[in-house]
């Protein structure tokens, strides 16, 4: 397995280089240094100020030289400073990862628990009217865009019921929960529809296996059979679907963080795109791809660990 992981890591180098080259090209083809300067220091800034800004950031140097320096900086995790705020990106990422994880991790877990729970419930009441109704509900959930969930839950949870703050974030011990509760609920609901349908299919396959009949014949209760044996065997399939997501949770959620004013990395990226803050966008893209590749490798490893029949070679 060790050799396999090393090989996968080496394969990821050209992929990462491709991502870096593509994003670098996109920014440098679509945006001239003059336009970047105007975006960063304001369109009212006189030419002299713009020229000074371009020079101080080395944007007047040949593109190849800029690219080599850029790759070197990314490889050593020296992300530089934001063009818009002048803040060190390493510090910005450190500060942003916490709020992002505070939403994405519980949101992911709540979504997973809710999805698995609802899917098991559907298997429990399978082929009944209730089962079909839940499937219909799941399809309806799938059809709703994320922004609608955000607006709806903000309107209900914050405006009508006054349970949660409509926006904002603060590290205040347990009270922090009130800021992240609504975003977590949205995060959990966003993928619930598709997850429930998928998990139901996985569990329905398991329920017809021989080991289920054996377990029942041995006198185990339906709860134990479903919640222990069916769930455990279904988990192997679930791993492939969920583990790849885990590392990327640190990058936060673009939409949810933006609408709820959570100062995480997703929010940071949205702002950076809006203001053409090139260092932030390039660093976020790089980190995103790095974590995605890490997630895929982790999935393979977990898959092999969960199912002894699978050998990585």
């Amino acid at each position: 397995m060790f050799n396999y992981v090393i090989r996968r890591l080496l394969y990821s180098v050209p992929i990462l280089l491709g991502v870096i080259a593509l994003t670098f090209l996109l920014f440098n083809v679509l945006q001239t240094p003059e336009a970047a300067a105007a975006m960063a220091i304001g369109s009212k800034a006189p030419q002299q100020a713009r020229e000074a800004w371009i020079k101080s950031r080395g944007l007047d140097r040949p593109k190849t030289e800029q690219f080599v320096k850029h790759v070197k900086n990314l490889a050593t995790f020296q992300f530089g400073t934001s063009w818009k705020t002048g803040r060190e990106l390493n510090e910005v990422f450190r500060q942003g990862a916490g709020p992002s994880l505070l939403i994405t991790l519980p949101g992911f877990l709540a979504g997973l628990l809710g999805g698995v729970g609802l899917a098991l419930y559907q298997v429990y009441v399978r082929k009944s009217l209730l089962d079909r109704s839940i499937t219909l509900f799941a399809v309806a959930l799938m059809s709703v865009p994320t922004v609608v969930y955000i607006f709806f839950l903000q309107a209900v949870g914050a405006l009508m019921l006054n349970y949660f703050p409509a926006s904002g974030f603060d590290w205040r011990g347990w009270e922090t929960a009130k800021f992240v509760a609504l975003p977590i609920i949205v995060m959990a609901i966003v993928n619930l529809g598709s997850d429930v349908r998928l998990y139901r299919t996985i569990f329905m396959e398991e329920i017809n296996q021989d080991y289920v009949r054996t377990a029942l014949a041995k006198g185990l209760s339906s709860g134990v059979v479903l919640g222990k044996h069916v769930l455990k065997n279904g988990l192997i399939a679930l791993i492939t679907l969920t583990v790849a997501t885990l590392p990327r949770l640190i990058m936060g959620s673009l939409l949810i963080e933006n609408f709820f004013g959570i100062p995480g990395l997703g929010n940071l990226l949205v702002m950076a795109i809006g203001t053409s803050d090139q260092p932030v966008v390039l660093a976020c893209t790089y980190l995103g791809s790095l974590l995605y590749i890490g997630g895929l490798i982790l999935t393979d490893v977990c898959y092999a660990l969960a199912d002894p029949r699978i050998r990585l070679s």
């Binding site: 903000q154 409509a166 926006s167 904002g168 609408f259 709820f260």
Partner: peptide, 18 residues
């Protein structure tokens, strides 16, 4: 000064008196 970028939260927070 709260830094709020979206319109809906501003409206809600004003309505609530925050």
């Amino acid at each position: 000064f709260s830094i709020i970028r979206e319109n809906l939260p501003i409206f809600i927070l004003t309505r609530q008196g925050y």
